[in-house]
Nucleic acid binder design. Structure first.
Ligand SMILES: [Mn+2]
Ligand SMILES: [Mn+2]
Ligand SMILES: [Mn+2]
Ligand SMILES: [Mn+2]
Lengths: 220, 220
DNA sequence: TTTTTATTTTAGCCTTATCTAAAAAGAACA
DNA sequence: TGTTCTTTTTAGATAAGGCTAAAATAAAAA
């Protein structure tokens, strides 16, 4: 069985996230930028992860994650997202505060702990940011999601995720009254700048720029 | 503000536990034995903890914990015990399974997390082993506890802690039907070997050796 | 009070994970 | 197809935390 250190788990999770977002491979510099670790350090770690067969690494040509690696990355992501649910649902954290703490909790080693936590939370399928929680076998059921600015006039849906999950953006959404789970209806679409007006939970109307709307994902 | 690494937190907690148990100072070898780390490594760490002013360290003469160090040790102990309560009360862990996981969780850095966890658990005062949980200022209220073998014939009490908290001993207690919180009455004391018979929760009788009874602590 | 034993520290080595600076390789351009 | 620019790797350093073996010190015994 392959054993990973905390640092290795962080790299592998980053590589998984970077490669699942469309492209099948990622580069030393991408990982460096994403993780805020210098390229030289990334190179060295890639060599080590390659030796542990969790990634395919050809010097100068970027990395692909292996099946083994994917399984391990998904295990960490599962833990991260379950802890996020715990923090929000049980400890009343707001959804912009959880990432940092979950980045630590995700490394705690105890299969029983995660299994029981999952059960305790009622086997949630999505985390507070709307991202799917892999099951214990690494299977992920994702929902087809559309950026809010692409919903037609009078169209309805439910906010399930954000593209930009920076604390600043999340706080902004909280302030204007948008949140994961909110039922929305598009009341107006302004032609010339793409800004929109939406109705939230049949109660409150919000105006937002095309840029903001493009970072909000909904299911219809 | 003094920042400690995970390893330093573990050492400081060990030193606190070793010095609170009666004596006011402890030795390199004691720490080495307790933590299962070689004396040479302990020496080196004591030098570093001394430089950080969390212990008083005079080479060859053992260590005392400082006020600053005590505060930090109690913070870690508080986190450890709160997580133990969480694992037992919310995730149905048995009390002999929690120590290992709590030894990891106790290092997660987030004041909000601990505050909220405390609140979520209903501000518990004792952990599953009967040990007191320090408040956020490091204050501990302990109960006067007596070894079960010192309770007189027909005396009653409540099991609140164990001296030996090895998994083996805890499992043995579980098996015979003793547990933290159990109301007990001493039904018989055998003169020649000190073994006793007790009644648990007015339901079940248990025989135990003097050795076992001496490791069980009760309040009267 | 000297000698022996036990404890503790130091010296030197290893691994992990980071960094900066320099070298090498690949990609883009002329 | 060279030449230049960008990306990536290597080399060498540092810090944390562990180890073994050897040296130093304190405690116990003779
Ligand atoms: Mn992490
Ligand atoms: Mn998330
Ligand atoms: Mn610990
Ligand atoms: Mn405990």
């Amino acid at each position: 069985m392959i054993k990973l250190t905390y640092a290795e788990e962080n790299y592998l999770k980053a590589i998984y996230e970077l490669t699942e977002a469309g492209k099948r491979s990622t580069s030393t510099n991408d990982i460096s930028t994403w993780m805020k670790i210098k390229p030289a350090s990334v190179s060295d770690m890639l060599r080590k992860l390659g030796e542990k067969t969790v990634i395919d690494y050809r010097k100068y040509y970027g990395v692909h994650i292996t099946e083994e690696g994917k399984k391990l990355a998904l295990r960490t992501i599962r833990k991260h997202r379950l802890w996020e649910v715990f923090l929000v649902e049980k400890l009343r954290f707001s959804w912009d505060e959880v990432a940092e703490v979950a980045d630590e909790l995700e490394h705690v080693q105890s299969p029983t702990l995660i299994q029981r936590l999952d059960e305790y939370l009622g086997f949630p399928k999505f985390d507070p940011h709307g991202d799917p929680i892999p099951d214990e076998f690494g299977d992920v059921r994702s929902r087809p999601r559309v950026p809010l600015n692409e919903i037609e006039l009078d169209g309805t849906g439910q906010i399930v995720a954000v593209k930009d999950s920076s604390a600043a953006f999340l706080r902004y959404l909280d302030k204007v009254g948008a949140y994961i789970g909110a039922r929305i209806k598009v009341l107006e679409k302004v032609e010339f700048d793409g800004s929109i007006e939406i109705l939230v939970d049949n109660k409150k109307t919000i105006f937002m720029s095309k840029d903001v709307a493009g970072n909000i994902l909904v299911i219809q």
